[in-house]
């Protein structure tokens, strides 16, 4: 039963959330707080058996212990969205890490030209600085996206410690 309802609400939830996201981005902290407060209220309503839309509700209705874990076949809306972020990051990462050295192998002439201003040979710069720097930027990007995903699904990690 959980499966059916979550599939039905998925599209609605997606568009609804996009709108909410925009509001948060456009507005300031006050809006942010309002949204959080609103979410809380919605959550309570859900617990009480009320009707609400959104990813947070899907999350409440998903039984994660009954949903198969398979990297290639995600079974919950949360994992589908999470894996979209993961694979995007992974693809960019693979290009950053193995791209420059492969390009140097294929076209050594073009890749070893000297860069303007900083005078690095291009391949040296892309390998020594581009790859580690790129991985660092990607890591921060991923951690942020994951936090945003948690917020969207109404998950708060700071609460968990206090409730113990």
């Amino acid at each position: 039963m959980t499966d059916n309802s979550s599939h039905e609400t998925e599209d609605v939830a997606a568009t609804g959330d996009r709108a909410a996201d925009d509001a948060v981005t456009a507005g300031d902290r006050a809006v942010d707080d309002a949204v959080t407060a609103g979410d809380r209220a919605v959550d309570d309503a859900v617990t009480d058996g009320g009707v609400a839309t959104g990813a947070a509700q899907q999350h409440r209705q998903t039984d994660y212990l009954d949903s198969e874990v398979n990297l290639l076949n995600p079974s919950t809306p949360y994992m589908r969205e999470h894996l979209r972020i993961v694979w995007t990051g992974f693809a960019i990462w693979a290009v950053i890490v193995f791209g420059p050295v492969t390009a140097t192998y294929v076209a050594p002439g073009a890749m070893t030209t000297q860069m303007p201003i900083i005078s690095f040979p291009l391949h040296y710069f892309l390998i020594a600085i581009g790859a580690p720097g790129g991985a660092l930027a990607l890591s921060a990007w991923y951690a942020r996206r994951r936090d945003e995903l948690d917020t969207k699904y109404g998950i708060d990690h700071d609460d968990a410690g206090d409730s113990a």
């Binding site: 993961v86 992974f90 950053i96 890490v97 040296y124 790859a131 580690p132 991985a135 990607l138 991923y142």
Partner: peptide, 21 residues
């Protein structure tokens, strides 16, 4: 030389894989 950079790349970028997976 450039082969040594494989160590720079391997020892940093692996953390991203560790992080996402």
């Amino acid at each position: 030389g450039v082969y040594g950079l494989a160590f720079v790349v391997g020892w940093t970028t692996g953390y991203f894989i560790l992080l996402i997976f």
